Simulated scan of single mutants.
Amino acid sequence: METKPSEISSSKMFGGYNRRYKHFSPTLGCSMNFHIYFPPPPSPSHKFPVLYWLSGLTCTDENFIAKSGAQRAASNEGIALIVPDTSPRGLNVEGEADSWDFGVGAGFYLNATQEKWKNWRMYDYIVKELPKLLAENFPQLDTAKASIFGHSMGGHGALTIYLKNLDKYKSVSAFAPIVNPINCAWGQKAFTNYLGESKADWEEYDATCLVAKFHDVSTTILIDQGEDDKFLHDELLPNKFPEACKKHGVPVLLRFQPGYDHSYFFIATFIDDHILHHAKALNL
């Protein structure tokens, strides 16, 4: 199986290139796709810091690249965007595509412990396998200088991965993140199936719970939330996280944006703010 990434498409944008790759992932046991946006290099030997984007439920590695408009600011700031997929694919596990909020396209950025879903190890894929793959195959990337952000399920992923790996990422931000999954239907469904019944295991993937354990945060956590988001009150529970942050002295900026929903129209509107937030932390 070819673990080395091979390029499957390339499109020029704002002087740089959106390039799509595929590779076999030993962590997930299947072939995976990911995108990299390479800004225009100021010199042949230049190395770009990396900013990982984690997408939400139902998304692939393509949604953000096509819809966010993040490349303009990334090009200006000299940051490479790394956009992985949201789950293993093609494993044909029974029930993997029965619903949009679980299974395929819904990896929740955790390591599943239940035998049936043993390939759903997106946490290890994002935190361990992908950075190593990038470091070994793309000399133009400085993978030691990394930040992370995401949307909805991906916002949950970005926050939890950041808090558990404060030594690996310079900053984090999120759009409409699922900040307290143990207390919402999306999280409860995913966690029960992937992790079993132990609530203690669930808390290891809940940003609001993790803040109590990992609060040596020096860079402000930026969160944007649309006020007209239809998932706001039942699934996203945005106020829970800043309450926990305040209790433990973690700097957070939660901005409610009037009139905005859960879509990429919302993300595209505020994406430049987030790129600049990370550019500052990456010392550009």
Rank of each mutant, 00 (worst) to 15 (best):
V83P: 00
L141A: 11
R89F: 13
I82E: 02
F270S: 00
E115K: 11
N239F: 10
F24E: 09
L195Y: 13
K213H: 14
G196E: 09
N18P: 04
L236I: 12
E204Y: 05
Y194R: 07
P131R: 00
I182L: 09
D85Q: 14
S87G: 10
S263Q: 04
Y162N: 03
K170H: 12
Q140V: 09
I79R: 04
Q225C: 08
G196P: 11
F175V: 10
F149A: 09
A70E: 10
W53F: 15
G16A: 02
E115V: 04
M13S: 15
K189R: 15
V50G: 03
W120K: 08
T269Y: 02
Q140K: 14
L57T: 14
W120T: 12
G154L: 09
A176S: 15
L54R: 05
H262P: 13
Q71P: 03
E62G: 08
D61A: 15
P251H: 00
E77I: 00
Y109C: 10
H151G: 10
K116Q: 04
W202P: 14
S55W: 00
K247Q: 14
S75V: 09
L210I: 10
S10K: 11
L284Y: 08
N193T: 11
V172G: 09
I221D: 06
K246F: 08
L159T: 12
T143F: 01
M32I: 14
D61Y: 12
I65G: 01
N193E: 13
D124W: 04
D142M: 04
C245H: 11
I182H: 05
Y169I: 11
I271K: 08
P40W: 06
I126E: 05
V250Q: 09
A200Q: 15
N180T: 03
S75Q: 01
L166N: 07
A244Y: 12
L236H: 13
G187Y: 08
E203A: 15
E129N: 13
F14T: 01
N180R: 01
N165M: 03
F149I: 06
P84E: 04
E7S: 13
G95S: 08
D201Y: 02
Y194E: 02
T27L: 03
L159E: 08
D124N: 15
H248I: 04
N193A: 10
Q257P: 00
L130I: 05
Q140T: 11
G78Y: 11
G29N: 04
D85W: 07
A185K: 11
P251S: 01
D101G: 13
A190R: 05
K199E: 13
S25V: 10
V179I: 12
H233A: 13
